[in-house]
């Protein structure tokens, strides 16, 4: 049987992925520090500045990432689609050790797609919410819910908590279930026996 190299993650995806990872990691850490500035002894202006620079990087990166998937029309590969619901039981049976053979779902399994969709929506919410907090003396004039700033702060906090707990789950599952796919996120390619 001969081997073939298959491109799974094109260069733009790899760049967007690792930028997102770095930016979100920084935003989660600095955000949690702003929420509770006790676990390090840092000047807060410094942490806030880092948070704000990365916020705008995040917005730019998120916009381009979304644009890329929209123009390549590849978004059904990463977003949870109605057809994915049918595939969920088989994934769950495998993840809960009721079935032993790993089903082949292609590029991403429905669970991963569900998580990516949640992150996508959460990113939209956090961007809007963060912009309101950033332009705090303007946003209150736009429409009433934006004047409820403590509630917006709470939403940002729980959004951050969701990132903080779901990223480790993502890393754990990626590394333990298929290191080849993690490698593909670096090199772009996966090596496989020719079908």
């Amino acid at each position: 049987m001969s081997l073939e190299k298959k491109l799974v993650q094109p260069l733009p995806v790899r760049i967007f992925h690792w930028l997102t990872a770095t930016i979100v990691f920084t935003l989660v850490l600095t955000g949690l520090y702003i929420n509770n500035p006790t676990f390090l002894d840092l000047p807060l202006w410094w942490v806030r500045k880092v948070h704000f620079y990365f916020s705008f990087l995040f917005i730019a990166n998120f916009t381009l990432y979304t644009y890329y998937y929209a123009i390549t029309r590849k978004y059904p590969e990463v977003l949870f689609m109605p057809g994915d619901i049918k595939k969920m039981p088989r994934l769950l049976a495998f993840e809960f050790f009721l079935e032993n053979t790993q089903p082949n779902f292609g590029r991403y399994n429905p669970g991963q797609k569900l998580l990516f969709t949640a992150w996508f929506l959460l990113a939209l919410v956090l961007i809007c919410d963060g912009l309101v907090l950033y332009f705090i003396n303007l946003a209150q004039n736009i429409f009433y819910p934006l004047a409820l700033v403590n509630t917006l702060r709470m939403i940002i906090y729980f959004g951050t908590v969701f990132f903080a707990i779901s990223i480790p789950v993502h890393i754990y599952l990626a590394v333990t279930s298929d290191p080849a796919k993690v490698q593909a996120m670096v090199t772009g390619y996966i090596e496989q026996n020719k079908p």
């Binding site: 799974v8 298929d178 290191p179 996966i190 090596e191 496989q192 026996n193 020719k194």
Partner: peptide
């Protein structure tokens, strides 16, 4: 098995 080639992952 790590990153060793497997039976077609992507078909």
């Amino acid at each position: 098995s790590g990153t060793k080639p497997k039976a077609s992952i992507v078909t």
